[in-house]
Design a protein around this nucleic acid. Structure first.
Lengths: 230, 230
DNA sequence: CCAAAAGTGTTCAGGCTACACCCATGG
DNA sequence: CCATGGGTGTAGCCTGAACACTTTTGG
């Protein structure tokens, strides 16, 4: 028996994470311009075109809707409940993306704030469709992944003080970390380069030394079967 | 700008894992009856119908094509390269499934062996479409998952001797395990019940005590934040 | 009695956790 | 000189890895 394929549309959606020292980890959302769920907040995304890959579709939609371009992009999960869109049967392949602090800041100038906006992950608004569900899954995934892959660095600038890295982990994991133990473990992985540079001092306190993630070294260690784990 | 959704079909595919004491871990494949890739081996699957969920589609296709029904089913990854099917644009949501030994045996009687057949994961044939890629991803996933979730039990009978569990891990991870350390760790998790029963002795050797997985207890421990890790 | 498979404890090393005081800077 | 944030070491505990002989059964 050969079956006919029914009419099902395919979209991609992207949960974009950003980090800023003062605000912790945030997610990029857009305000919908058209029904259904007009004027409600939603994860950016849209239909996949006939001759583009899923990843290309995500990158295109992010460019069109928010103006940002991401470097780290990973497939999250595919949502396909028959009633998840009131108009028609739509299956959504969800991704999560990480952007560096610098780009994160850039958005604030570039984009009309009423269309695309960052929300701290602890203060999320109501969301259209099943997007709340998608976002929860994305947060779960990034929390889990943070502990066995060095993805945190994708959210930081190239050079960062150690305290930034620590704050990022605290913000994402939602609990305190012992500074000494964290630094000891992180340095023992030998994937950080200590630079001869100090953070600019904005306000008070001793300026911290800058570090950078040594991706080459990480790839090398990975090949040798040595794992990142925190 | 509102975009029209292009014509893209959605299929589901399922990598079904089974385990038998004598043969180790195997995968269920079907021989294709129609072009493209006629007479080649493929992962079972097919088109998603308009009003069924993705999981329902997987279960239906497995029933239709192989006669088995699975209990454990988990989404693996969605494959959507524009050229992955020579006929038209098709996006496939891949799942992996685990079946208990008993059902695994049942198939051999039920099904025409030239249509559906088990293959040991170390002796796989060439596969249609990008199914080799899908299968590799599934094996990676189950190997990783085995170490932090008690999914191995889904492949065993309700009651099993400890040696079966050990053989399963050896077969899936592809390396030897120290029996004493493995048993110590497994028992320390307190998710196994030791029964007052012994394995039937087929051949030689001392009969082993039977155990069963205490799922309730596992769920309880999980709630308390205690993790399975092996 | 021989072959096959199951059962069982100890030791050592390395990693994880807990914990508190000093230092550099700006205001 | 005070407030703020960064930098640093040690000791106890626990977990994971290595390792070999005895017991039960069937043939």
């Amino acid at each position: 028996m050969v079956k006919k394929s029914p009419v099902i549309s395919v979209t991609v959606d992207a949960v974009v994470f950003g980090y800023a020292k003062t605000e912790g980890v945030s997610v990029l959302l857009i305000r919908r311009k058209y029904p259904p769920f007009k004027d409600e907040w939603a994860i950016p995304g849209g239909f996949v075109l006939e001759d583009e890959s899923l990843e290309e579709a995500v990158k295109r939609e992010l460019r069109e809707e928010t103006g940002i371009s991401v470097k780290y992009l990973e497939q999250l999960y595919t949502f396909g409940a028959p009633d998840r869109d009131p108009r028609q049967r739509i299956i959504s392949v969800a991704y999560f993306a990480l952007v560096k602090t610098a780009r994160f800041m850039a958005l604030k100038a570039d984009t009309d704030a009423s269309v695309a906006q960052w929300f701290n992950i602890t203060e999320l608004p109501a969301l259209a469709f099943d997007h709340k569900h998608i976002l929860e899954k994305a947060i779960q995934r990034i929390q889990a992944k943070l502990r066995y892959e060095p993805i945190g660095f994708e959210l930081l600038d190239k050079k960062f003080p150690f305290s930034d890295l620590e704050r990022l982990y605290v913000s994402l994991l939602g609990r305190e970390i012992d500074r000494r133990n964290f630094k000891k473990k992180m340095l023992s992985l030998e994937i950080l380069d200590e630079l001869d540079e100090y953070a600019r001092n904005d306000g008070a306190g001793r300026p911290g030394k800058m570090f950078s993630f040594n991706k080459q070294r990480y790839t090398q260690l990975q090949k040798e079967g040595i794992l990142f784990e925190i």
